[in-house]
Amino acid sequence: MDLNWFVCFLGAAVVAGTPLVLATLGELITEKSGSLNLGVEGMMYMGAIIGFTTGLQTGSPFFAFIGAALAGILGAMIFGFVTITLRANQIVTGLTLTMFGTGFAGFIGTPIIGERAPQKIIDTFVKVKLPLLGDIPVIGEIFFNQDYLVYLTYILIILVGFYLYKSRYGLNGTIVGENPKAADSLGISVIGYRYLHLAMGGALCGLAGGYLSLIYVPSWQDSMIAGRGWIAVALVIFSKWNPYRAYIGALFFGGLNIVGFRLQQFDLPVSTYLLDALPYLMTVIVLVFDSMRSKSRSHAPAGLGTPYFREER
């Protein structure tokens, strides 16, 4: 296990962490406005299949990812309509969205299982070394010799951070999540911001799914998301609702996702089937440690998961 192997491993962890960070950002932005959407896994499935089929139909990488994002938005809008407008329970609706999205992907995807993503899309997303940044020893190789969507993800992390902390709209959305009553009396549209944040979150989750089906795998396979959406939900808690911390968490879990496969060559005494359980076990451990430090609760938006009805003021 020399340095070279390690650099290679970390580079792969960045790739494996990319769908996780996209989905985590999506759920983070959603939760910031007070909606607890547990349908991340479902939206990722919808993004993955629509992105993949759009790619097959058009051969265009651009339209494929637009399709993936729109599919995620569609899932989020269903969630929004049922929980915000029709006021249903967020937890159950989120679970339903997960099941719906999984069924949706199976329904559309079964006939094309095993089909590869179009060559043009695969060629578009080969690894490209960035000038200057890519020449930094070790760091450059790990972070700046990647495909375009990885770079887009870096930008998105900064954009989300800027939106949430520096822009008026993001601060309004945060107020909606912390105290919808106060937001309403300030003239901020609670419903509007919740829908807006859901849509942005859905788009990011859809992109995450598209990344898996179009770049990471890149062919259509059953049960492709494999719980990553749920890991993203846990990562939001772990990140204390901070997009930059979310990236660190996603990298860590990206590494766990591939560690079993990567360690195969070393003839370990542990079966890879068991190493595959690591990301899930680690999610449990991280969550438990997080909840042991009870103060971390205060990082969650105060109004998270609670619906807001104006006339019941």
């Binding site: 249903a88 719906f100 069924g103 949706f104 329904f107």
Partner: peptide, 28 residues
């Protein structure tokens, strides 16, 4: 019909969405 079996889970999800949404008309 060569319709994937996942049609059943899709339908189940839809049913639950509609029933969840319909609670609104029971409560309000």
């Amino acid at each position: 019909f060569q319709i994937p079996q996942a049609a059943a889970s899709l339908l189940q999800g839809l049913i639950l969405f509609f029933v969840l949404g319909s609670e609104f008309f029971i409560k309000y």
